[in-house]
């Protein structure tokens, strides 16, 4: 009788232990799933934040480069335009002197020719500078156009900025 009661008690306690074990296994499994899900979510969050941050930095860099390039191009164009005007004025001076050569006496002719020579060499030097700058500005403009196209690849904010630039270009 005692043996039977002892066996029943033992198996009763065993059942309680087994149920406790099962509940702890269940809790452990739920925690593992929660942990793994959290780790995955955190990894994704970090990846998203890093991607967005690097996108913002890339956009800021592209904007800074674009603005600098536009300003530098404008400064160069302004100088080139004023230089072109100067070249025209020097050329008209050369033409005035050349028209006078035939009617001048020999000593005056010598001075006029010397002055023309000076003006021509100045004209040539300024023109060489102008053409060199023109080449550089053309290259800069090409690079700026490519830079503008790069905005499209820089996400939603880049596309918005590109549209804003396009709108401004249309207004002009």
């Amino acid at each position: 009788m005692i043996q039977i009661i002892g066996t029943l008690v033992y198996f009763g306690l065993g059942t309680i232990a087994a149920l406790f074990n099962a509940s702890q296994r269940n809790r452990f499994n739920e925690t593992v799933s929660y942990h793994n899900k959290t780790v995955e979510i955190c990894k994704q969050r970090i990846a998203t934040v890093t991607r967005r941050a690097s996108g913002s930095v890339a956009l800021a860099q592209a904007k800074a480069e674009y603005r600098t390039a536009i300003s530098a191009g404008n400064a160069a164009w302004e100088f080139m335009n004023s230089t072109r005007e100067e070249l025209n004025q020097i050329w008209s001076g050369i033409m005035t002197l050349q028209a006078r050569i035939l009617s001048a006496n020999s000593s005056q002719r010598y001075e006029i020719i010397a002055a023309i020579k000076e003006l021509r060499s100045t004209h040539a030097a300024i023109r060489v500078n102008l053409y060199d700058l023109k080449d550089r500005v053309r290259q800069l403009n090409h690079q700026t156009a490519l830079l503008k196209q790069r905005f499209v690849q820089l996400g939603e904010a880049g596309i918005t900025y590109y549209r804003h630039l396009q709108g401004r270009q249309c207004q002009k």
């Binding site: 400064a75 230089t83 500078n129 700058l133 500005v137």
Partner: peptide, 20 residues
Amino acid sequence: AAELLRRDAEGVATRLRRLL
């Protein structure tokens, strides 16, 4: 005057080239 003009233009062009 032409000499001064040439030097001035060269000076500005050099600065612009450096800027570019």
